[in-house]
Lab assay of single mutants.
Amino acid sequence: KFNKERVIAIGEIMRLPNLNSLQVVAFINSLRDDPSQSANLLAEAKKLNDAQAP
């Protein structure tokens, strides 16, 4: 279950337009470290993406 959620979360994070490459890598590394947190990490990535919108 967590592996599928992690793959989906990674794909979504990679498509967030307002994150820089270091932020994307940090979120992906966090997902690798704890796949059970996929939903929480994706939500945090989306919040950061929205906050950094031009």
Results as ranks from 00 to 15, higher is better:
K1A: 14
K1I: 14
F2G: 15
F2P: 15
K4S: 13
K4P: 15
K4A: 09
K4G: 13
K4C: 15
E5W: 05
R6V: 15
R6N: 14
V7I: 12
V7L: 13
I8M: 13
I8E: 08
A9P: 01
A9R: 02
I10E: 14
I10Y: 04
G11S: 09
G11Q: 08
G11M: 13
G11A: 09
G11I: 12
E12A: 13
E12D: 06
I13C: 02
R15M: 08
R15A: 10
R15P: 01
L16R: 00
L16M: 12
L16P: 00
L16C: 03
P17M: 06
P17I: 10
P17R: 07
P17D: 05
N18F: 09
N18S: 04
L19F: 01
L19A: 00
L19N: 00
N20W: 05
N20P: 01
S21Q: 08
L22G: 10
L22V: 10
L22I: 07
Q23H: 02
V24T: 06
A26W: 09
A26D: 10
I28K: 02
I28D: 02
I28P: 01
N29A: 12
N29W: 04
N29I: 14
S30Y: 10
L31Y: 03
L31H: 01
D33E: 10
D34Y: 07
D34W: 07
D34I: 04
D34A: 07
P35L: 06
P35G: 11
P35E: 05
S36M: 08
S36V: 08
S36W: 08
S36N: 05
S36T: 13
S36D: 05
Q37T: 09
Q37E: 08
Q37A: 12
Q37H: 08
S38N: 14
S38K: 04
S38A: 12
A39L: 13
N40W: 10
L41R: 05
L41Y: 11
L41Q: 04
L42M: 05
L42G: 01
A43S: 13
A43M: 13
K46H: 07
K46I: 10
K46A: 04
K46M: 08
K46F: 07
K47L: 08
K47D: 06
K47S: 10
L48S: 02
L48D: 01
N49F: 02
N49M: 03
N49C: 03
N49S: 07
D50F: 07
D50P: 00
A51S: 08
A51E: 09
A51M: 12
A51C: 13
A51D: 11
